[in-house]
Write a protein that binds this DNA or RNA. Structure first.
Lengths: 165, 165
DNA sequence: TACACTGTGAAATGTTATTTCACACACGTG
DNA sequence: CACGTGTGTGAAATAACATTTCACAGTGTA
């Protein structure tokens, strides 16, 4: 449940192609259309190690497709969000690929302010605590946005090391 | 810890004047300046029952002060955020008054999609769960953004009632 | 007086997101 | 095949949210 790139170096190329293949299979299975634009946007989201903004995607999209405009990107992003293929980080106004789009899950994010990467987690205790909290207020819950900002393990280590020198 | 207006009808006028008085006292005590602009912006935030956007504040500010521009508002909001007198809701790009600015606390929000009001809570279990989750990833936590979206008790009741008719 | 610090005025610009209308294409049905 | 319908896209404009920059005013202090 932890996004692949966050904790260890890895073959990002592999994780992109893998994600795209799974997205295709999933869309096929659901009877929805992963059109070329949508596919390309998903690819660009995965290309970026860190959460990426809509206009950054747009800029890259313009590279091959001169006709791309903001709605092109937002429409694709909306589709991908609906299908659970990506997530939106509210505190960053940015988007990140989802590693396990098969189940519609509730997830949380650990966002590193140093390297800008985000780790996706699905923590039952957090969800449970939030649910109980909402219930206590008579609040009927439909969505939980939890974004934890801080410094990831690797960056913490790097900073400590730099501090010692 | 629950923002006054959210659960029961109340004298909102009283809660505004009360909040302003406490803000004044607090700034005095801290040796920071609650200037007329800052005070006015805080008042406008409290005037609104629901979280309010920067440009909505600006529009009202322009009513009495023709010279107001976006930075006028954002500078005031930045100050108020620093002093803990207001909170920012990331998922709404909006601001809400804080009922207990005396202690710098970690809070969460229950946001009603019906009436648009937000309830502020400080739930220890949520914070604890988030802290444990971060630790498990070796993540050193600096800020938690938790915004729960749903329907508040009153709106739920209202909707149920409407549904029965 | 001179200086530093803090807060404001004003204009421009940057960034993120939506609305609107027209059109193209795929698909199923008569 | 002709025809409607639904879905996705092109293109322009606009809306909504936020920051940069530079000049200047007020206050306290050496």
């Amino acid at each position: 449940m932890i996004s692949a790139g966050a904790l260890a170096p890895h073959d990002h190329m592999h994780c992109i192609t893998d994600a795209l293949q799974r997205a295709e299979a999933l869309c096929e299975q659901r009877g929805v259309r992963l059109t070329p634009t949508r596919r390309r946007v998903l690819e660009l989201v995965w290309d970026s190690h860190a959460p990426i903004g809509a206009y950054a995607i747009l800029d890259q999209l313009k590279g091959n497709d001169r006709t791309a405009a903001p709605p092109t990107v937002y429409r694709a992003l909306d589709f991908l969000l609906e299908q659970g293929l990506i997530h939106r980080l509210e505190s960053l106004n940015a988007f990140i690929g989802c590693d396990h789009p098969e189940d519609h899950h509730i997830s949380q994010f650990l966002i590193c302010t140093e390297c800008r990467q985000a780790i996706e987690v699905a923590d039952k205790r957090i969800v449970q605590a939030a649910t109980i909290c909402a219930q206590a207020q008579g609040f009927s819950l439909s969505r939980i946005t939890l974004e934890i900002e801080g410094t990831c393990a690797r960056c913490s280590a790097r900073l400590r090391e730099a501090g010692e020198n």
